[in-house]
C-alpha cells in the first residue's frame, strides 16, 4: 500500500515548568493510516533521538483509551477531531497527506505544564480525596446482596463512573472548569444506596476542594461534554448543583 502520508507537526516544546515554551515544526514522513496518533509521536521521537535531540515528552500508558494518561490538544481540540476517542485511539486515517497538525498540552491554570506535552493533573486526585469515595473500611462490608440496587441506578452510576480522569473537559472549557469531572464522581456515588449516607457532605466537600484549586467557574458552555472521550453527559452538572443547594441548605440549618 502506498497511501503513506507526510505530515507537518507543530509541537509545543517547553523544557520545564518555569521555562518559556514555543511551537516547533517537524515533518514526519511515511505515516501509515493504520498508525495511532501516539505512534506518530513515537516515530518522531525515534528520529529526534537518532539525531541526538531530546524527544517530545508526553503522557501515555494503556494506549487503549482507558487509563486517562494521554492528554494532547490536537488542532485545538482536546484528544483531537474524532468524537468519543482518546488521542491514543485516534488513528491517522482521519488525516490526509500534507496536513499540518498542531499538538499542544492541556492548557489550564490548575494543570501546570511539567515538560512539553506533560501536565500536572494532581488537582483531580485531590478533589477525589475530599469526598469521592464511600467510607467502607476493608472488612466492614455487609453481604453484597443485603442491599439490592435498582438496575437503572446501577446503570446510571456506571455511566458516570466511566470517567477516565483525563482532564479533557477542563482543557476544553473556556473557563477551565472541572465541573464535569467532579459532578461525574458525585453522580456515580450519590445515585447508589451505599453512597447516600455521605451524599450531602460529599458534594459540599468535593465542590469546596474543586474551588480551592485553580479551576474556573462553570458558565454552562457545554464544551466539556463535547470533548469528553467517555460521553459523560452534561446533565450530571445540573444534578450536582441541585444536590449542592439541598446539602448547603441542610447544613445551614444544622449549623454544620
Amino acid at each position: 500500500m502506498s497511501d503513506l502520508m507526510e505530515l507537518t507537526l507543530r509541537v509545543w516544546r517547553q523544557p520545564g515548568p518555569d521555562a518559556d515554551g514555543e511551537m516547533r515544526t517537524y515533518t514526519v514522513a511515511d505515516v501509515s493510516p493504520d498508525m495511532s496518533f501516539l505512534e506518530v509521536l513515537d516515530v518522531l521521537n525515534e528520529e529526534l533521538a537518532a539525531r541526538g535531540e531530546e524527544p517530545v515528552a508526553f503522557d501515555h500508558d494503556c494506549r487503549e483509551g482507558i487509563c486517562g494518561a494521554c492528554s494532547l490538544v490536537i488542532n485545538g481540540e482536546p484528544h483531537g477531531p474524532q468524537k468519543r476517542t482518546t488521542a491514543c485511539q485516534l488513528h491517522m486515517r482521519h488525516f490526509a497527506d500534507g496536513d499540518v497538525i498542531d499538538v499542544e498540552p492541556w492548557r489550564a491554570a490548575a494543570f501546570p505544564v511539567v515538560r512539553d506535552l506533560v501536565v500536572d493533573r494532581g488537582a483531580l486526585d485531590r478533589i477525589v480525596g475530599a469526598g469521592g469515595y464511600i467510607t467502607a473500611p476493608t472488612g466492614s462490608a455487609p453481604e453484597a446482596h443485603a442491599t439490592p440496587v435498582a438496575k437503572d441506578a446501577a446503570d446510571e452510576a456506571f455511566t458516570a463512573a466511566a470517567c477516565i480522569g483525563c482532564g479533557a473537559c477542563v482543557a476544553a472549557c473556556p473557563n477551565a472548569s472541572a465541573m464535569l469531572f467532579t459532578a461525574a464522581k458525585i453522580k456515580h456515588l450519590n445515585v447508589l444506596p451505599q453512597g447516600r449516607p455521605e451524599a450531602g457532605t460529599r458534594v459540599l466537600d468535593m465542590v469546596a476542594a474543586m474551588d480551592a484549586e485553580d479551576f474556573g467557574g462553570c458558565t454552562n458552555v457545554g464544551a466539556c461534554a463535547t470533548a469528553c472521550p467517555k460521553g459523560i453527559p452534561v446533565d450530571v452538572i445540573t444534578e450536582m448543583n441541585r444536590d449542592w443547594l439541598k446539602a448547603a441548605a441542610r447544613s445551614r440549618k444544622s449549623g454544620r
Binding site: Y133, T138, G139, A141, A144
Partner: peptide, 22 residues
Amino acid sequence: LQIIDQCVAQGVPFAREYGGLL
C-alpha cells in the same frame, strides 16, 4: 466471597439484573 462484598460496599457499579441483584 468477601471481595465482592467489599467492592459493592465501596460503590463499584457491577452489572445488575432488573430485580436489583448482581
